[in-house]
Design a protein around this nucleic acid. Structure first.
Length: 463
RNA sequence: GGCACCAUAGCCAAGCGGUAAGGCAGAGGUCUGCAAAACCUUCAUCCCCGGUUCGAUUCCGGGUGGUGCCUCCA
């Protein structure tokens, strides 16, 4: 499989450190609020990546952290008159609600920063001991950027170019404007932990280094996140980690593109972000997932209601095809057509795999799914042998399983009144009372159900 | 200013040297009492100008237009 490595800026063959296993770390949410659609993209994209690796037989050690201590949490907790741990606990719970609805599988591990304080302190201490970091005396500890020769290798920035943008905030005691905080001295009323250099709390960048190294070791396969984390977050992680261990940190870096709203980046400062929780009130989040996967992950996507509706229509098509396959009439004996279809199945599978192998080209892979759905729809228009139907279903479920769609059983329960009306309509149709049949269909439509007639009866479908 | 990215039909979106996947929407048809679903047919020479090549949407150069990072952010 080829993946695009941000570090080398080209597609590379994915060769894991340990054959058959992949260790990967994805930057997770800061849990001070519900997450927004921009946060959702890496969750969905890298979940899909993980699903594909597992489908290909890899054992994947998939880590996604929760940042549960930082300025935003402290501020928000104060606003809501609660504590930081309570706030974090609440939004971690809410994270799972939305992530589950998006079809995001649980990570192997969801480490929290506050549960790795000893490891963070030890890492900071190592950096101080090695001369890569310095305490200021009032609780802060900074990383000395100029002490790490390779600084800028991920983002392709020369140190001199970065310098112009950097500055020292009032009250900071940095030796160099480029230096960044590993540890922040405690202010009154804030959560704080005891350290050799005073009471305080971890900086953002160091958390990810400490947790990834703790759970995956000094060198691991893949580190992933949004494009906006390339600089400074991931650049800083590399500097800290490699300065501390003397070993290479992540071997491959993957970064997803942004979600735009009205062709503009969604961001905290612009205040134009859309919460997944709010979107879920209007749309099936599986449609949102399909929408997020409808473009290759490195390209930007523009979010709009209309586009999600397009994805919802496409998702319905996939669902219908799967349903038809499930309800397909079984022929008593296999035929030549069955044998031919079984041969076609491997062609479809190969096309799907090839798309996914090419840097997770989900747009192409979804195209393969639609191609396959059409083939299935045609195939099941007549009774077919059981073996062919089973094999068809197996591939179908593989594809939708990798993409993480059709994971929730469609609600098949209909209210009694609707079912009674449907029965009444079947009688009316038998009696060729078309006027009454149409009247009942209209009534059902008004209740929110579509009627689909077929040779052997009629079905209800939620609108 | 430095570093990147993008430009394909009404809307999305693959392809990236041999004359354009797929979906949504639209049109026509098959099926149906009528519908729906499904199936069939139909719907683009790929921003502009040069160059390389037998051949370029695909490579190179130059434009034009848009976006991002360099500051918290997925």
């Amino acid at each position: 499989m080829q993946i695009y490595n941000t570090m080398t800026r080209k597609k590379e063959e994915l060769v894991p450190l340990v054959p058959g296993q992949i260790s990967m770390y994805v930057c997770g949410p800061t849990v001070y609020n519900f997450f927004h659609i921009g946060n959702a993209r890496p969750f969905v994209v890298f979940d899909t990546f993980r699903r594909y690796l597992e489908y290909q037989g890899y054992k994947v050690h998939f880590i996604q952290n929760f940042t549960d201590i930082d300025d935003k949490l402290i501020r928000r907790a104060k606003e809501e008159n609660t504590t930081v741990p309570e706030l974090a606990e609440r939004y971690i719970k809410e994270y799972y609600t939305d992530a589950d609805a998006l079809g995001v599988e649980r990570a192997t591990n969801n480490p929290r920063a506050t549960e790795h304080i000893p490891q963070i302190i030890a890492l900071v201490q190592t950096l101080i001991d090695k001369g890569h970091a310095y305490p200021t005396g009032d609780g802060d500890v900074y990383f000395s950027v100029r002490s790490f020769e390779d600084y800028g290798k991920l983002s392709g920035q020369a140190i001199e170019d970065l310098e112009s943008g950097a500055r020292i905030e009032p009250g900071e005691k940095k030796r160099d404007p480029l230096d960044f905080a590993l540890w922040k001295g405690a202010k009154p009323g804030e959560p704080a932990w005891e350290t050799p250099w005073g009471m305080g709390r971890p900086g953002w960048h160091i958390e990810c280094s400490a947790m990834s190294m703790e759970l995956l070791g000094p060198t691991f396969d893949i580190h992933a996140g949004g494009q906006d984390l390339v600089f400074p977050h991931h650049e800083n992680e590399i500097a800290q980690s490699e300065a501390a261990t003397g070993k290479p940190f992540a071997r491959y870096w993957m970064h997803n593109g942004y979600i735009n709203v009205n062709n503009q980046k969604m961001s905290k400062s612009l205040g134009n972000f859309l919460l997944v929780r709010d979107i879920s009130k209007e749309f099936d989040l599986e449609a949102v997932r399909l929408f997020l996967l409808s473009a290759q992950y490195r390209n930007p996507v523009n979010f709009s209601r209309e586009l999600v509706e397009q994805s919802a229509a496409g998702l319905a098509r996939i669902r219908t095809a799967r349903q038809r396959l499930k309800e397909a009439a079984v022929a008593p004996a296999p035929t030549e057509a069955d044998a031919e279809f079984i041969r076609d199945i491997s062609t479809h599978r190969a096309a799907f795999n090839a798309a996914m192998d090419d840097d997770l080209n989900t747009a192409d892979a979804i195209g393969c799914l639609f191609d396959y759905a059409r083939a299935v729809n045609t195939f099941v228009s007549e009774p077919r042998g059981k073996e062919a139907l089973d094999k068809a279903a197996e591939l179908f479920d593989s594809m939708t399983g990798v993409l993480g769609i059709l994971q929730h059983e469609e609600a098949t329960e209909f209210p009694k009144e609707a079912l009674a009306l449907l029965a009444e309509r079947i009688e009316a149709r038998k009696a060729k009372n078309w006027a009454k049949a149409d009247e009942i269909r209209d009534a059902l439509t008004a209740m929110g159900f579509a009627v689909e007639d077929s040779k052997d009866g009629a079905k209800l479908k939620k609108l």
